[in-house]
Each structure stands twice: as structure tokens, then as C-alpha cells.
Design a protein around this nucleic acid. Sequence first.
DNA 1: AAACACCGCAACCGCATATCA
DNA 2: CTGATATGCGGTTGCGGTGTT
Length: 461
Amino acid sequence: MGRSPCCEKVGLKKGPWTPEEDQKLMSYIEKHGHGSWRALPSKAGLQRCGKSCRLRWTNYLRPDIKRGKFSLQEEQTIIQLHALLGNRWSAIAAQLPKRTDNEIKNYWNTHLKKRLTRMGIDPTTHKPKTDPIGAGSDTNSASQSKDLANLSHMAQWENARLEAEARLVRESKLLLQAQQTQQTTTTQPPPARLVLNKITAAQQQPLLPPCLDVLKAWQNSWSSKPQLSVPSRENFKMHSMYAMMLSTDENLESPTSTLCFPGSGSSAMLPIMSSTTTSATTITVDALNENLLNPSLTKTKIDSNGTMVTPCDEGVFITKGGNNNETDSSWYMLKQNNPEIELDDDEIVENNNNNNNNGFRDDDIMVAVEAFRGRGGGAYDGVNVVPPTLSSTGDVVVMEAGLICSSNNNGDDDAHMPYDSNDTLAIINDGDGSICNVSLEENKHYWNTILNLVNDAQVMF
DNA sequence: AAACACCGCAACCGCATATCA
DNA sequence: CTGATATGCGGTTGCGGTGTT
């Protein structure tokens, strides 16, 4: 029923391909393209089924295939993506140019999986096994310390993966709702959509798993050096990844992972972070706008009671526009409506259409926006990231404010200051002593450290 | 040198999904 | 809308090469 007949049922050849068969297949596809795989074998003079031809072509004969040893960077990417995506080899292969899903799958099963196992890490869940330290034979304390440090890093990544999975589910639901709404009404504005999806939709490309965007953003934040001298900005680039980690939806479960350290809650799953209780409140966008647009409140803090405190010397405002001249960017709108407002450069960061000349990229802000919106916000005080312990109501989340990020839903991909009632926003904690001791170097070398351990394990075993 | 064990990888199998009529 | 067909994907198999006893 609907299934193509198996090779054996029609007497077609199976098994390894001969050079002659390869040549026939290659020359046919070079001349005519593959077209219908089902019809290809007879046209090309091959006694094979179409499926076999397709596999041979995509996994072996295709000219844009890179063969041979995987580089360290490729290994790193595979491990990262596997932590994010699980055994979705085609998705992983899409991020590794010139590598096929089959090749990556084989490499994982024959090399990487075993290495992680030897390290005491479950390759399926990417979590430490019951006795991770005891898994190795080396009882040297320095080695144990190294293992512990790396397992902590693994825990961080695992949490990030959980978040990515949760986001995937969440965004799928939201996107579906948005599509359904758009189909049923043309008078109402679409519901708030997630920024990362806006981009792919705008580009009319298939929807990519948002976690890939996140990964890309994270990698970008590594690869591009901070260009501003203000420390808080440099840190924010890095912390977009941690912001993602912080947005947790306990209603969503990972299909593959259950990482949990003994005695740890969700925030403690990031071992290097500590948390304080931060009460939260909600406020309407309009009400907040009223304050933000008030020139006397250019520095506004919303304390734990929901009270706006003015003036407030803490925190950083972030806005982003399409380019320097666009008047519809929120900052320019803010300025346009309130020309008397003067914020110094330390307080306003304008992002210029991915030019990155202000040290930010779209992705950085978008990831942060999404992450903070995801559950009810994380906190960033300009130096540190604080795990969220708040709730959200509707689209608006207010914590003790300092740094403000928002996202509109008007169809573009800007993240900006709130100026419209339909906007969603998150206000990021200015911090009150809560500490997240994450250094840039620590973050940057996270996976390098893991891979060093992998390599050490190879030598050791 | 032979037998055996192990490993890596190409290829296959069957299910899920997309597309078409 | 439904069923038929095509394609894609992930799990698994089996063969050839290599290492070990």
C-alpha cells in the first residue's frame, strides 16, 4: 500500500556498487540530473532500485562531499549539535558542509559515542553517569578536579539543550497558533511570534530548528570580538547564551534527557551560578511606555514591588534598529517623540542591521529577547546573569529593571524598546548582589576543554 | 600462519512524511 | 478528502580490513 517494491521483489541488484555502476550513475546525473529516482535506474541502465541510487549518490558520489578524517572543529560541532538535537543526523549534517548524515552517524557511533562513554558521560543524554569520577581509573586528584570541571560544563550545555528543546516545542506551538490565526482572520494582528522564526519566515526559507539559530548566535558571539569598551556590553554578547539557558519551562520535558545533579533545582543545574530570590510583577506595556517616554525617567528602575524608581543610575538600555537612518527603530522613535531625552552612550546601544559595528549582532539580542520571554525572564545586571525566579503574565514581564529588551510583533525582526501595546518585552534584572561568575574565557573555552578531556581519555584508554 | 575478534563503513530496511492524482 | 506514490530519515546489518592471540 503505497510502498515501492523492494529490490529483491523485482530482481534488482543489491550490495556494494561497482566502479562501472558508479560511472553510469554519475554520468547520467551529470547530464540529466536525478529527476525521479524511481525512474532513474532504467534510464541510466542500472539494475538497481531508485532508493539505492539515491543513497549511493547522496552518500558517496555527489561531488560536494568531503571525505576523510573529521577535524577537531567538526567533532566539536557534532557533539554540540548532538547534545542539542539528538540523533537527528540530517539536521546535524546540514550544519556541516560537505558531510553526509550517514557519515556523521557512522562517525558518531564508531568514535564520538565511545569516547563520551569512556569519559563517563552518557552519549544519549549527555549527562554524567552515576559515578562519573569513578568511571575513570585515574584517582589522581587533579584529574578528578579536571573531570569535575568539565562535567560541570557538560551540565551547562545539557541545560542549554533542554532549553533549546523546550523552545522548539514552544515555538512550534506559537507558530501554529499564529498560522491558524492568520488563516481565520485578517483584521486582527497576528499573535506575538518568536523573533528567530520571523527571520526565516521573512526569508521564505524552511523553518529551521531555532536551536540552530541559537547555536549560530553563540558561535558568532565567540568569533566576533567585542568592539565596545563598555564591559557590560562585552559581557552581554556572551550572556545571550546563558540567557537562553535561563528560560525554563517546566511543563516541557526533554524526550531524551533528564539531567539533574543531586540536590539541585533547575537553577542549580548551572553549577557555576548562584541564585537569589527575585520577586516579580507585571505591568502593561502602555504603562511602561508612559514612563519610558517620560524624559524625567530616562533611567528607570522597577523594584521588586513593581514600583518604578526614578532616577535610577543602574542598568543599561538596549535598542536596535534596522539601520542608522531608519526612523521606525525604537530608539529613533523614542528620540523622535521625545527629543529632549538624552541618554549617554553607556545607556543606549544601537544595533545597525547586522553590521556589528556596535558590538552587537541581531542574533545576540534576539536570543536574549526570546530567552527572557521564554519563561518569565532571566536577569542580567550588566556584569552577571542571574537565574530567573519569577512568573510572567501575558506578554509582559517585569523584574527589577535595569536593562530592557523587547520584541515587537509587527512583522519585522527588530528587537527594540517598547512603543506599541502589541509589543512584548522583558525587563532584565539590574541585580542585587546575585552573582554568576561566568568569565568570557570560561565560556569561550568550554568545548575546547571538553574536547581536551576527550582526547585525554583517548590516550588514557 | 591460521583462526578469531574487533572495527569502520557502505548499504539496506522499514517507517514517517511529503507530494501528487 | 483520500489513497497512491515518492522521498527522506534513522536504525541496523553485513562485509572487508585490521589487530590480536
